[in-house]
Design a protein around this nucleic acid. Structure first.
Lengths: 156, 156
DNA sequence: CGGATTTCCTTCGCATATTAAATAATTAAT
DNA sequence: ATTAATTATTTAATATGCGAAGGAAATCCG
């Protein structure tokens, strides 16, 4: 049985969706995709330390520093230091940021509904499980195969 | 029935997979995600005009110019003018570029297999159809909902 | 034919992102 | 106490991506 080329399919699906959504959200809210991601992550884990956000979004600290800078300048979030551990910096959503999450809601909800419309509940469940699976396991899978490739090269 | 938040799930899955894969492919082949995408697109449509690549990857012309520049510098592809229509520029893969596609193959294949391993053939088919569906319909769906949002704003 | 328009691509300027390496500040470990 | 590890920022280099403007070729149309 032929296996779907998920790797490229996922990339195609993603770019198709997000280049378009990016444009819409940028012109309507002034939010970039990445900033959106940070905001939505914070909406679920308000006050998360930088390290945790970086983890969730698979980014380095240095990427986040600039990102949070820009969002803080615009009044969407605030940095606060942890009193227990003065090294870690926590990020909190401000009202303005929360408002943006709310404003984006009907948009993303509509998109979800429209994209899932042709699929049965069972299929929708499969789709969800797959995307979750990729989100949580991709790093390990990739690392494993990258190591394999390296070993093959050494043994060649 | 609760609907999966495909929008955010897709983003999470994609970043998880591609931040990791990016790193691996960059260190092993020196290819960025976008350059990969161009290369793989060309592997299937060698000699495509810039406009077509832009279409496929949902990018503007100006983004592609620089991209192809860098790849041309590295000897992966070549630009050639269309003799029939001197405006359009076609891009061809060179041996070096083709070699990279080949070199990346086992890697992506392994990843595909690993990510699909927990899913039955039927489920794999569903997944493929979904990703295809998103890839081809996302733009329309997003535009439609963006327009709706704009209309609501005007009528408010 | 010839001017206006359109198409295809490049150039340029700008904002965003991303990474690697170096630095700081703080906490933990021995 | 000294050393090591953790957390985050800074800096510099590169990539990416969009929009506006321009140039060159093709097409439209009066």
């Amino acid at each position: 049985m032929r296996q779907p080329r998920v790797f490229h399919l996922l990339q195609k699906a993603h770019t198709a969706l997000f280049r378009a959504a990016d444009h819409a959200l940028k012109t309507q809210l002034g939010l970039s995709t990445t900033q959106q991601a940070v905001l939505f992550s914070l909406a679920q884990h308000d006050g998360a330390p930088i390290s945790q956000i970086a983890d969730q979004l698979h980014m380095g600290y240095s990427s986040l520093t600039g990102l949070v800078d820009r969002m803080e300048t615009r009044g969407l979030v605030t940095r606060r230091q942890n009193q227990a551990d003065a090294r870690s910096v926590h990020v909190f959503i401000e009202d303005k940021g929360r408002a943006m999450v709310q404003a984006a809601m009907p948009f993303t909800k509509g998109i979800n509904a429209a994209l899932l419309e042709p699929f049965s509940p069972t299929e929708q469940n499969t789709i969800e499980r797959f995307l979750d699976h990729v989100a949580t396991n991709a790093t390990d899978v990739v690392d494993h195969h990258a190591n394999n490739a390296r070993q093959e090269r050494f043994s060649a």
